[in-house]
């Protein structure tokens, strides 16, 4: 169904051109929701939806947007989609939406969304733009979920709120690492992910 080029558009942002670790986009709104896996997964899905659909919409109307108010039009489209997502979460996933609090709203200023609109959707066809949006959203979500996995596992000893570290460990002196729950550890975890990724893909190393 999908041609080779389309598959590339979809899969490239997952690793080689990952928005967080390579493009340095969209770190802002999201690390704060990586204390537990559940909110991280919901956040990742929300970003994918917003990114995919805003890319399609902008791509559809790209030939009609007045250049002078381009940025505002993009912001309006993104903001409306985010409001829809926010309303949806409040109605059908209330508990998670409370944990995400203002961070759903901050998807608006997530640089990934604006960045992809400018760089891709403004001069590509809708279907390719959609794949690009979903791919970038997924690449971003992947990092979120990896960070959240480690933070929840070592910080609370749970995954999706289910205890995974057996009681036997605790009886023999194992303790959850409260430090993992602090914001600081999210940054350090991302740093380590970058380290691992760049060791595996030496081409990405920065020259200074």
């Amino acid at each position: 169904m999908a041609s080779k080029k389309q598959r590339e558009i979809l899969l490239d942002p997952l690793f080689e051109n990952n928005p967080i670790t390579v493009q340095v986009l969209g770190i802002c709104s999201a690390l704060a929701v990586t204390v537990k896996l559940m909110p991280a997964v919901v956040m990742a899905l929300s970003v994918m939806v917003v990114l995919g659909f805003s890319n399609v919409i902008i791509s559809l109307i790209r030939n009609y947007i007045p250049m002078r108010i381009r940025i505002i039009v993009q912001l309006v489209v993104i903001a409306s989609l985010v409001i829809l997502v926010d309303l949806f979460l409040k109605a059908f996933a209330y508990d998670v939406s409370k944990q995400l609090s203002v961070f759903v709203g901050l998807i608006i200023t997530n640089c990934i969304v604006m960045g992809r609109l400018e760089a891709f959707a403004m001069d590509n066809k809708p279907w390719a733009s959609f794949l690009d949006g979903i791919g970038n959203g997924a690449g971003y979500g992947l990092i979120l979920i990896i960070v959240a996995f480690f933070r929840e596992l070592f910080g609370s000893g749970t995954l999706f709120n289910i205890k995974v570290i057996p009681d036997w460990f605790y009886q023999h002196g194992y303790m959850d690492n409260g430090m993992m729950l602090m914001p600081a550890m999210a940054l350090i975890t991302v740093g380590i992910i970058i380290w691992v990724q760049r060791s595996l893909m030496p081409g990405l190393t920065e020259k200074e």
Binding site: G191, I192, W195, P202, T205
Partner: peptide, 8 residues
């Protein structure tokens, strides 16, 4: 270490 340089 080279892979950590910059962003990491």
């Amino acid at each position: 270490p080279a892979p950590l340089r910059g962003l990491g």
